[in-house]
Amino acid sequence: MSLDLNLNIGLSTVGSSANHYDVIIIGGGPGGASAAIYTARADLRTLVIDKGLTAGALGITGKISNYPGVPGPVTGAELVEIMRGQAESFGAEFLTDKVVGIDMKAEPKMVMAGTGAFYAKAIILATGSMGRTSSVKGEEELLGRGVSYCATCDGAFFRNKTVAVIGNNDEALEETLFLTKFTEKIHLIVPTPDMKARDVLMAEVSANPKIDIRMGTALKEISGNGTVQAVRVKPRGGAEEELPVSGAFVYLQGGKPITDYLMAQLETKPDGCLMVDAEMQTAVPGIFAIGDLLCSHIKQAVIAAADGVIAAVAADKYINGREKVKQDWK
């Protein structure tokens, strides 16, 4: 049969042991990777789902010299890779994917990601705080009318058209490359002087003749009468320019805790942060949160790592029905 129907993607494989874990950790930064070291070492079957090495705050940090035990300087990506390697050595699995939803009421708890459904007895949320705090003019009004945050979902609506992609990370570049299958031309608006993405992606984007890359350029407005018709951009030190486009795919980042995939199942404070108890457990038993997701938090990798360890030990206690934590030293 020539048509690939992709019936296996997103297929809920209840009953399959392959997608069942003791612990699923969402986010593979210092908090998530540290939690994975401890859960995997405690013989808990552990899956870490992460958008990519450079998706989080540490992954895009250039030089670190104050992480205890690692004199450095090392890049954030190098530090995260060391932690991930350590977790993998104890049996933790890492999956590059984006979580789109969680069913906390289900038993076992269900995590829906782009590649399908995964199940776990406990979940540790470690998605950090690079969510956007504000939108640009026109963005909210034109959402679903040309403004999109998902090229794989909406790319087919822009066949043979010109679109803009705004962002500088792995996700923005991957989505840009996906859109080349449909669109005639893509303006890649990079808000920073440098991209914060993997070299292989940057090379692929740079080599594609459909992609017009504009470095150090800010998105000022998305405009249109009912549907997107243009984006207004401003390069650093240059004059504003209006680019006629039919779609605008926005992958900008900010400093807000990333909790959209929780679909309001956990209460957040006005600034979007999550509340936990002393063992990092949220209001839902078996759901833990760590690192920059938390309120009143010092945003340092070592703090997130420590949070991860506390959550891992508490998850072990929760899963095995222990009354007290099991000490890992004598």
């Binding site: 129907l5 992709n6 997103g10 984006k98 789109v100 939803g101 829906m112 990601a113 782009g114 998902c150 794989t152 979902c153 909406d154 790319g155 087919a156 679909m263």
Partner: peptide, 10 residues
């Protein structure tokens, strides 16, 4: 929906 949209089944 589109078949390539992971958010759509929800």
């Amino acid at each position: 929906v589109t078949p390539t949209c992971p958010y759509c089944p929800q």
